[in-house]
Simulated scan of single mutants.
Amino acid sequence: MDPVSRRTFLSRASMFGALVSAGTLLPLAPWSLPRASAQGGTLMDSVEAFSLDTMRGICVMVMPGPDPWSRQQGTPRTDPGPVEVGGGEFMKDLFDNYLAMGDQLARPLALGLGEALSDLGVRAEPFLGLEEEEGRRIDEILGYVYSDRVLPLSLPVALLFNFGALLAAPTSIAGPLGSPFSRLSLTDKFRVLEAIEGPVPELLSVIDRSLPVPLRASASGFLRFAGGILLQGTAFGVYSEMNAYDPATGVVEPRPVSWDLTHYRPDGLVDGHDEFIGYFQDRTEVPADA
């Protein structure tokens, strides 16, 4: 895979701007995810659905399944995948409730990325899946939605991946599913990760410009963290039993999908091996000179 160079980054940004100016980007397809306002929801519902859709598009990179996100990236499988077991919800919850980054960091990151997208000519209506054109910039809508709420960390991460998606494939602004990143092929998704973990200087400047002064120049660390934890977190989260384990009863129910994929416990409970019971050769201590 060719690296995403500075020249490539700039040329794709220019290409995207040209497509927007020429009006050649199509509106969202009618079979994309239901928009929140069409379902009687709110702007926040649309933004949250946008973040969740992005997380699903990331999860299927690690563990494809029979779902639309896997089909869109070109790697469908008949076995169940992360969408069926709530992998996107798991990753969104991980970022929003367990990873340590306060609102003083998440808010400027999200608003800064929203401003950068708006400066490229991206309209909020197709990008966030709103029912009607709000007439406001992406950063203005995000500021309004979360004016009196803590901004979830999954949102700036989703914005970051979708910013990269528009540079990797400008026409991903329109199409099925609910976010540009989810519309990419698997190859283009890897290009986005490469640009984030690399990272390209222009992407660094967007993040640095968004952060408070004491934290500027730390953008590369955030980008590498975001790119790494998503794939690793998906693998650990989806392949573990945590979502099926009931701590009150000590029972794992229903049977985790990962057990079937790995043929784990094919004949019921596994009692273990005698060799692992007690101490090796009945030893209870190890001499200092051993």
Rank of each mutant, 00 (worst) to 15 (best):
Y245N: 06
A226W: 00
H273N: 10
P247W: 06
T42C: 07
L33T: 09
M63Q: 10
V213I: 08
P212S: 03
G233E: 03
R56G: 10
P126V: 06
A235Q: 06
G112V: 03
T284C: 09
P30K: 11
A219C: 09
R35Y: 05
R265D: 11
L52N: 06
V20N: 04
F276N: 12
P64H: 11
P156T: 02
V47L: 05
R56Q: 15
E84Q: 15
F50Q: 01
F16H: 02
S21Y: 07
L109D: 01
L269I: 12
V47P: 01
L159I: 02
A158M: 02
S185I: 07
A124S: 10
G86Y: 04
S51V: 13
R35W: 05
V270N: 12
R123F: 02
V157Q: 05
P199G: 09
T8M: 11
L230A: 07
F127W: 07
D260A: 09
V83D: 06
I138V: 15
S37W: 10
I229R: 02
R35V: 08
D119I: 05
S118D: 04
K189W: 06
T54K: 03
G74R: 13
M101W: 11
D79H: 14
A288Y: 05
A168K: 00
A116K: 00
S240T: 04
G23F: 04
S179W: 00
P3N: 09
I196A: 00
T24P: 05
R136G: 08
A13S: 11
A290H: 13
E285K: 11
E132A: 13
L167P: 01
H273Y: 13
L230W: 05
G129Q: 03
L142M: 12
I173K: 01
L159R: 00
S21D: 14
M61Q: 13
Y239C: 14
G250T: 03
R6A: 12
E115D: 09
H273Q: 13
D267H: 15
V122G: 01
S46Q: 03
Q39M: 11
